[in-house]
Structure formats: structure tokens, C-alpha cells
Amino acid sequence: MVAANNDISLKSRIKELFVDYLLIISYLVILLLLSLSFYVFIFGKIPSFTLLQSQLIAGLTSVVPVVIGFSWLDYCGGSFGKRKAGLRLSYQKKTFLAASIRNIIKFFPWQLGHMGTIDGIYTDYTSLFGHICTSASLILLFILLWMGLFRKDKRHLGDLLAGTQVVKKESEAKTSNSYLSI
């Protein structure tokens, strides 16, 4: 069930995003340090990778674990950012699949950005594929942010597809009384 008018403040949403992205940046820094250490100690240097290998490494080591991690956190009560901002995820039907759909959509612009950047590095930014991925990434990112911050119900595309909504923790009782059917 979804509240038509969600009273989450812009400040709360920005706090949520800031804390969650600090967590992601921390993970990426640790991943970078571990990867570099592995390459230097095992191979003595950073090996060369093909475009496809680089795409797979970026997707499988950064995006996929973050999507799975945030899906699990959302399923179990909310990400660290949501908890810190006093928010939680409300479900039409609480399943891990719903949390996963939401997070796949939420992090899809990030994956498209990786694909565009990596393609650009390998093709000196002359590839149409890289430009399409980068442009699509930025457009989708803007759409998701705009929807999550400025729609009356504060739902982005992932929420709409997953049947979820970010709400204030204390507004749980209000949400169950004033809802719209999805």
C-alpha cells in the first residue's frame, strides 16, 4: 500500500543518499586496495584486460555486490542511509525479489555509466556505444533522482515496478490508513 502524499523531507532523502553513497565509496576504496594488492603481490604488476574483461570485472565486483547488499539491507529493514535518516522501505508485498527489482533499477544508471566510461577508455571516446551508455546513464539518473525527490509519493521507477515506497519510520501507522492501491 502506498501513501499518495509522502511527507518525507528533501533533507531526509539527501541525508539517506549521502550516507548510502559514503558506504558505497568506502566499499569501492577497499575493493581497489585489495585488487591492487592482489595484482601486485600475485602478478607483480597490474595485468592488461580486454574491453569485455574490464566490463565484467567492473560489473561483477562493484555493481552486483552493491545491488545484492542494498537489496538485503532493504529487505531487512532499510539501508544504513534510510536508518540514519529515520526512513524505511514499505512494501506492497515484502519479498527479496521486490527489494532486488527496486535496487536493480536504482543502480542501473551506475552500471550504464561504468559501461560508457570503460568503453570510452578503450576507444578514446569515439565509440557510439560508449556515448549512448553515458547519455542513458545520466538521463536515467536524473529521472530517478527527480522522481524520488519531487514526486508527491516520493517513488522512483524502481519503487513503481517493485511495489515499494520509502516512508518515515514513525509514519507507518499513517501510511496504512491513507493509501492507494497499486
Rank of each mutant, 00 (worst) to 15 (best):
I57H: 06
S48C: 02
S48N: 15
L34G: 01
C76K: 15
G86W: 10
P65D: 14
V64Y: 06
I42C: 05
L97K: 14
R102N: 04
L97G: 05
G86L: 06
Y75V: 13
L97T: 14
S54I: 02
Y91H: 07
S54L: 11
G86T: 02
I57E: 00
T117P: 08
D119R: 00
F80R: 09
V66A: 13
I121D: 14
S71F: 03
L31I: 04
G81R: 04
H114R: 01
L52Y: 04
G78N: 06
S37T: 14
G81H: 04
L34H: 01
F107M: 07
G59V: 11
S54Q: 08
G59I: 11
F43D: 13
L33A: 09
L52V: 15
K94D: 09
G77C: 10
L60Y: 07
F80T: 06
S35V: 09
L51H: 06
A58I: 02
P65V: 14
L73S: 10
S48W: 01
S48R: 14
C76A: 07
G44H: 08
S71Y: 07
I104Q: 10
S62A: 15
H114D: 03
V63P: 01
F41Y: 13
Q92G: 00
Y39E: 10
N103P: 05
K82F: 06
Q55E: 04
I121A: 14
K84Q: 13
T61D: 01
C76M: 13
S37K: 05
L36P: 04
P109E: 03
I46S: 06
R83H: 03
K94A: 04
F80Y: 11
R88G: 02
K84F: 15
G86V: 03
T50D: 04
L97N: 09
L34T: 12
K82G: 01
I30S: 12
F49A: 13
Y39M: 11
G116S: 07
Y122E: 09
H114A: 09
N103L: 03
S37P: 00
Y91I: 02
G113E: 06
T95N: 05
I118S: 08
S100L: 15
I118K: 05
L97M: 10
S79Q: 07
F107Y: 15
S71D: 11
G120E: 08
R102I: 08
L97Y: 06
F41L: 14
I46C: 10
L112S: 05
K106D: 01
I42M: 12
T61L: 10
A99G: 06
K82L: 04
R88Y: 04
V66H: 09
